[in-house]
């Protein structure tokens, strides 16, 4: 199928989307050279700061969460591609306000290579940076092999928790510890019903049959798990909730965060219908949703499907999740 997208020269996608994003949010963020999006209040920060890296094409992620209480800088690569280690190093230097920087990297081949090469430069320069990897896709590896798990939407609440702890004046070690505890207790499962087109090439990523869905799609809909006949919202919700509860060993009486993240072409109508069943099913199991989000945080163009995210919560994590933040796509008073 021919790609139908509003764009100009495909080579300018990242540049133009970032320019538009910065113009639309000029009171909150600033676009610096080398595609670094910076929290406008960073110059006044006297605390630990939080930086991340990742490809474009997943809007509002990742830069949509740059602002007070979440990310201080996001280093943006080209469409679905990691930025350079040089740009990341520059962003870390820029973000360091003397209290150290938490550097959040999603577990994808390119991002990890860039993250590791950046840390080499960090070590040479003697910067105070701690790297945290988010890897929570339960579809492509068991929990024992967490290093093989992809980083999906879980990076977003991780930024929030880390940003909350940083704003509370915690040290870098403390911010890292609380964010890592959250990351160790989170899990995501994704389902795809229709693939996306790569906006630079127009090629379709992962084609699915008319009546098929795939549980365990990757960030870009690349294959990962079971293809099966299309199911109803209620059936799909139950399959996914069961898988996440099992992976996290969550028992009756526990408190969780639940996020339904639309992949780009699945409607809010569908997400609410799925959420309704999740809430009822969890209540039946005596598991309490203490934090939630339903909407688009991290998308993949016009891919249809969603990511279901779950995390075990405690009072401290909940406090940081609920702490104030002011970013283009997440605001808490």
């Amino acid at each position: 199928m021919k790609m139908k997208k509003f764009m100009n020269n495909p080579a300018d996608l990242t540049k133009e989307l970032l320019e538009g994003f910065a113009l639309a949010n000029e009171n909150l963020v600033e676009l610096k050279p080398n595609n670094i999006v910076v929290n406008k209040k960073l110059p006044q920060a006297n605390r630990v700061t939080v930086v991340t890296l990742g490809g474009a094409g997943h809007e509002p992620a990742l830069s949509g969460f740059v602002g007070e209480g979440m990310l201080d800088a996001s280093v943006v690569g080209d469409i679905f591609a990691a930025p350079s280690p040089q740009a990341c190093f520059e962003a870390l230097k820029l973000a360091d306000k003397g209290k150290g920087v938490l550097f959040v990297v999603l577990n994808h081949a390119g991002d990890m290579l860039t993250g590791n090469l950046t840390m080499k430069q960090v070590a040479q320069a003697g910067l105070n940076v701690k790297k945290l990897v988010t890897q929570e896709d339960i579809a492509n590896a068991p929990r024992e092999n967490a290093d093989d798990r992809r980083g999906l939407v879980g990076c977003i609440p991780t930024y929030k928790i880390a940003g909350g702890a940083a704003a509370a004046g915690k040290s870098l070690d403390e911010v890292y510890a609380v964010a890592q505890r959250f990351a160790d207790n989170m899990a995501t499962l994704a389902v795809a019903v229709r693939g996306a087109t790569h906006p630079s090439t127009g090629s379709v990523i992962a084609e699915l049959g008319e009546d098929e869905m795939e549980v365990g799609m990757g960030q870009h809909g690349e294959g990962g798990g079971g293809r099966q006949p299309m199911k109803s919202a209620d059936e799909t919700a139950k399959i996914m909730i069961d898988a996440l509860l099992k992976d996290l060993s969550i028992k009756s009486g526990e408190k969780i965060m639940l996020i339904l993240n639309g992949a780009g072409a699945t409607t809010l109508m569908e997400l609410f219908i799925v959420y309704r069943q999740c809430a009822a099913y969890l209540k039946q199991k005596d598991i309490t949703i203490v934090a939630n989000h339903v909407g688009e945080l991290l998308t993949v163009q016009e891919q249809a499907g969603f990511q279901m995210f779950m995390a075990r919560m405690d009072d401290e994590l909940l406090k940081y999740w609920n702490a104030p933040c002011n970013t283009p796509y997440m605001k808490k008073a």
Partner: peptide
């Protein structure tokens, strides 16, 4: 090598740069 590593393009750029 540095310039190639500076290309934004997933894993290939840091690998080729290295």
């Amino acid at each position: 090598g540095d310039a190639v590593m500076g290309v934004s393009g997933g894993a290939a750029a840091p690998l080729w740069g290295t």
